[in-house]
């Protein structure tokens, strides 16, 4: 068995009176996709922010396999080191593309900026790579010089994905990646994400309240309720044979089209 890419132990996060995450522990390996489901307020977004170093946990540790260093507590890194991780080895796909894109620079610039963060300097190569990535996320390359503010929501979300994956991260955090999109656009985006994550052998942590999304994307699932992980396992096990009362409620509440 190889060592974990990320190892989380007894993670706790409190805000004044709210206990947002309680005693969360798990390991994530290279190429694994972990889904985190639960209703609004269950603590899943807070968990994601603690994992991606945007927030520090109140107790417990988040260790990441930092290149050349091995498993390292991310709280022990300096802020510039964490920022570097987020710009290079990690990708963060926000629910609202406006939070993950620079809306006033061109689509090509959005993709190229990430490449420059990992050291690319040759303009022609950066542009070539940007064109290539626009194609991979099924964006018309004629739009490379347009600002994302002129794109539809679905296009912006695909651009955000291209921006995040261009630097070949090993781990991508996604918060409701298909939230707020039309159903037809969602299906397309899911196929795209599924293909990319697999082809590039990227690990991902996907937070969503949509069980269909995790069924399609995630190998494993954690179900959160009031800050606690109440059930975890293979995605199909948890969805097809849920053991916990709350998971059974979640699964039985889904409308079948």
């Amino acid at each position: 068995m190889t060592t974990a890419l990320m190892r989380v132990r007894n993670l706790d996060k409190r805000f004044d009176t709210i206990h947002a995450c309680r005693n969360v522990s798990f390991e994530l390996h290279q190429g694994e996709v972990l889904g985190v489901v639960g209703e609004s307020g269950s603590g899943k977004t807070t968990l994601l922010r603690c994992l991606s170093g945007e927030m520090l946990p109140s107790a417990g540790t988040v260790e990441y396999d930092v290149r050349m260093r091995g498993l390292t507590d991310i709280a022990a890194l300096s802020e510039p080191e964490r920022r570097l991780l987020r710009r290079t080895d990690w990708g963060i796909v926000h629910q609202n593309p406006r939070d993950g894109l620079r809306m006033n620079i061109s689509a090509g610039g959005n993709v190229g900026e990430r490449l420059m963060a990992v050291g690319a300097r040759h303009y022609g190569e950066i542009r070539g790579e940007a064109v290539d990535w626009l194609e991979r996320v099924e964006l018309d390359q004629d739009r490379i010089d347009d600002a994302p503010s002129t794109f539809s929501g679905g296009m912006q979300q695909r651009l955000q994905i291209a921006r995040n994956l261009v630097s070949k991260p090993r781990l991508v955090f996604m918060d409701e990646p298909t939230g707020g999109l039309d159903v037809s656009v969602q299906a397309r985006l899911l196929d795209l994400l599924r293909g990319l994550v697999r082809d590039l052998h990227i690990a991902a942590i996907v937070v969503t309240h949509d069980l269909a999304v995790v069924r399609l994307l995630a190998d494993r699932l954690m179900v959160m309720r009031r800050g606690e992980v109440v059930e975890s396992g293979l995605t199909d096990q948890v969805l097809d044979d849920p053991q916990h009362a709350y998971t059974q409620l979640l699964v039985s509440s889904v409308l079948q089209p």
Binding site: A187, D191, L216, D219, L234
Partner: peptide
């Protein structure tokens, strides 16, 4: 879980009664 997935990948196939359709593929 990783080992179960590896077993399903290499050792054990399963035909269910219904195809779980993946859109667009």
């Amino acid at each position: 879980p990783r080992e179960v997935l590896d077993i399903r990948r290499h050792t054990m196939g399963y035909v269910s009664q219904f195809l779980r359709v993946i859109p667009r593929i």
